[in-house]
Every structure is written in structure tokens, then in C-alpha cells.
């Protein structure tokens, strides 16, 4: 199971640039972690509305790590995707990346993924989550700078990008070249200009309490 926590509301508000939002919630691990259960979603929905956002729809998907499910489900609502429209995703970092991979719209994570403990061996695609505890997917068009950039840079590419490839491997895409292309396509290039503070590595180390919770949940099926 992948353990995630809700971002603080102020951060969610800061990263979601659009007025119209679709809330997309995963019914899998994130629901168990209580970041995408009905109560959490409706609380965030209310706060977003209070802050002038229009919630166009709330959609639940059983497993956000399954791109097929995302495409099939969202294709029914394609007409909702108007201008000034973004998707706020309540799932782990993998789920957010999967949505970004199949939908060319601004996508923002509502959570930070902090632990992959007890993960069941299913890894559905090229998306990787580093459990960094401070999800950057909202500022990178849904492409993870921690797992896609060899140097894990958060303020843009290094000088080593050569024809869109990484300096350490001419067959490996430069994560920042991908991020640039994506942000350009969804017309959000201005996000790249924002300064990102150095990462907080404290968040990479899940507390003993969390580790225990997860292992108990997976192995002993006790209450979280």
C-alpha cells in the first residue's frame, strides 16, 4: 500500500492556478489513508469554494495507477474540460503522474506521498515515486523532477541536457526537457519561473509511527 497525506490547504490553493476544478479521487490506497475518502474530499471542496474556486465535478476512480481506468472514466466527462480548468488529484504520486500522462490538462497533487511500505508488487508504467514527502507534480505538469531528473533538480534543468537527453545517458530523456514540453503544451510555462526552496529532506524519512501503521495495516489488517 502507498501511504500519502493531504497537503496543507494553503499549498493546495497556491498550486491550483485555475478557477474551475475537477476533483479526481483514488479509491485505492489513498482512500485507506483517508486522503481521498468522502469526508476529506468534501472538506477540501468546501474550502476551495470559499476561496472562489468552482468545483465542476468530483470523480472517483478505483485505482488511479491504472491509466486505462482513468481514460475510460474521464472520456465521459470530456466536455467538462473547459478553459481555465485544472484537475486536483487525490492519490499517491504514481496516480498523479498517470493522470498527467493521459490528460493534457494542468494537474495538481492534493497529497504528499511519504511511504511505499507494503507495496504489492504492481508497478503499472514508467511513473516512479520517490516518496519525497513533498509532491512537486503540481509545478512540473505532472512529471516528477525527483525521479525523472538524474540530479533531482527542482529549479529547472542543469547545463548538461543535450538534444533533450540526460548528460549521463544519451538514451535517457532529460526530465526537465519533458517538463518544459508539457508545461508549454498546457500553457503553464510561467510556473517554471517560480523559485523553489531547497527540498526538506526531513520529509523523506517517515516516522516510526507511520511505518508501524502501514505494516500493521498490510500485515495484520489492524485499524489504521
Amino acid at each position: 500500500m502507498i501511504y500519502s497525506e493531504l497537503k496543507i490547504f494553503e499549498e493546495i490553493l497556491k498550486i491550483t492556478k485555475e478557477e474551475n476544478l475537477l476533483l479526481l479521487a483514488c479509491n485505492g490506497c489513498a482512500e485507506v489513508c483517508k486522503v481521498s475518502d468522502d469526508k476529506s474530499i468534501s472538506e477540501i471542496e468546501e474550502k476551495l469554494k470559499t476561496n472562489g474556486k468552482k468545483i465542476k465535478r468530483i470523480i472517483k476512480i478505483d485505482f488511479m495507477c491504472n491509466k486505462n481506468l482513468i481514460v475510460r472514466k474521464l472520456s465521459r466527462f470530456i466536455n467538462d474540460f473547459s478553459d481555465n480548468f485544472g484537475i486536483l488529484v487525490f492519490s499517491c504520486g504514481i496516480g498523479v503522474q498517470c493522470v498527467s500522462n493521459v490528460i493534457e490538462k494542468p494537474i495538481y497533487p492534493a497529497t504528499n506521498t511519504i511511504y511505499l511500505g507494503g507495496f504489492q508488487g504492481l508497478w503499472p508504467g514508467e511513473e516512479r515515486c520517490a516518496e519525497c514527502g513533498m509532491c512537486y507534480l503540481g509545478i512540473t505538469g505532472g512529471i516528477c523532477p525527483i525521479t525523472f531528473c538524474t540530479k533531482q533538480l527542482i529549479n529547472g534543468p542543469c547545463g548538461g541536457t543535450n538534444n533533450g537527453k540526460c548528460e549521463i545517458d544519451s538514451e535517457k530523456d532529460c526530465g526537465w526537457a519533458l517538463i518544459y514540453e508539457k508545461l508549454k503544451r498546457i500553457e503553464k510555462l510561467e510556473i517554471l519561473k517560480e523559485y523553489q526552496e531547497p527540498r526538506n529532506y526531513k520529509l523523506c524519512e517517515p516516522t516510526g509511527k507511520i511505518r508501524k501503521k502501514i505494516f500493521y495495516d498490510v500485515d495484520k489488517n489492524e485499524e489504521l
Binding site: 533538480l153 529549479n155 542543469c158 523553489q196
Partner: peptide, 8 residues
């Protein structure tokens, strides 16, 4: 390492 980057 890359704890910081050129900008930070």
C-alpha cells in the same frame, strides 16, 4: 549530492 542547485 545536489542538495542545492545553482539557483538556490
Amino acid at each position: 549530492v545536489f542538495d542545492l542547485d545553482s539557483v538556490s
